[in-house]
Simulated assay, not measured.
Amino acid sequence: MDTSAYVKAVVEQTSILADWVHGRDATTPVPTCPKWTLADLVDHVGGTQRMVAMLVGEQMSEPSEAYAGYVPGPADSGQWRAWLSDGAAMAAQAFASVADDTPVWDPSGGAAGVPFWSRRLFGEACVHRADAAVALGMPYELAPEPAVAALEDWLATLTSRGYWENVPGFADAMRGDGQSLHFHATDAPGEWVARREQDRVALERTHASADVAVRGPAVDLLLVISRRRSLDAAPALEPQGDRALLDHWIEHMDWVTG
């Protein structure tokens, strides 16, 4: 997916989420983000989209002003649909005003800028819609191709140089001497090999033998790797090899904000 496709999908995913949460009980717990209520989830999605819209639209070289301007969602859940839709629209407008090579700060350590943020907002929308589905008892559906794209975002972000350097607990847990994991989507093109090294997790988009491999539908891979569904609750996935290594990976594939 390119930047425009990611942004279009952000608007679509956010629209579904907005319809789901509109008028719901703000205190509803979100089991997949144990410290969050539904209000926290809405705050996070809409606030992050507005923050990224400021970063991208104003072509910021450092994030402090955007972080300081983080906007929480309205207390009245009857306003959530419009508020979330407005945030996605603001992000879309910001991305439409720049080119892929426009310099914009991002936390990856790779100076990925505009493409990074379009992909990151898409991954956020997909994973947090899964959170809402669990909280509200809604069925979660995502076509294989966008599920592969969301999984690419999750894996690429958490194995980025910036994440390794800024989340020392993650680096300590993932530091290794070559242990490898292979993830393989069976319903859309998508394969990754992650290798735990002393100073990074190296991620390759390839097919290769590994210490542990797990293959199956892309949406199941996304939900399990992002800790939104347990491996035992995803019978379509087929893990082979060192299950303890896979369990360790999933345990530490955690996102700072939940």
Rank of each mutant, 00 (worst) to 15 (best):
A82V: 15
R81F: 14
E191S: 15
A171N: 02
V219N: 04
V127Y: 00
G23E: 14
A5T: 04
P139H: 07
R129S: 04
T206K: 13
W20G: 00
R175L: 06
S230Q: 12
D101Q: 11
A75R: 13
A112M: 12
T257C: 05
S15R: 13
V104N: 10
Y67G: 05
V45G: 04
A92S: 12
A26N: 12
D247Q: 05
P31Q: 08
S85T: 15
W255D: 06
L221N: 01
D211I: 02
R228T: 04
D76G: 12
I16R: 08
A111R: 11
A133F: 03
A92W: 12
L222D: 09
P103I: 12
D86R: 13
R228C: 11
Y70G: 10
T102H: 06
D101L: 11
V212P: 03
I225N: 10
G162Y: 02
R81A: 15
V21G: 07
D76S: 13
C126W: 03
P217Y: 08
Y6M: 04
I225K: 03
R175K: 15
A94S: 00
V224S: 05
S108Y: 01
L221E: 02
T14K: 04
V30C: 09
Q93I: 12
A132L: 01
V219A: 10
M174H: 01
W255V: 12
G123V: 06
G241H: 07
V201M: 07
P115R: 01
A213M: 12
E152P: 11
D211G: 11
A130F: 10
H184A: 15
E251D: 06
P72T: 12
G109A: 05
S77P: 15
D232R: 08
P189R: 01
V219D: 03
A18E: 11
A18D: 11
W36D: 07
T186N: 14
Q198V: 13
A244E: 14
A68E: 14
A26H: 13
V52F: 03
P217D: 05
P103R: 09
D187N: 09
R205G: 11
V212M: 04
A75E: 14
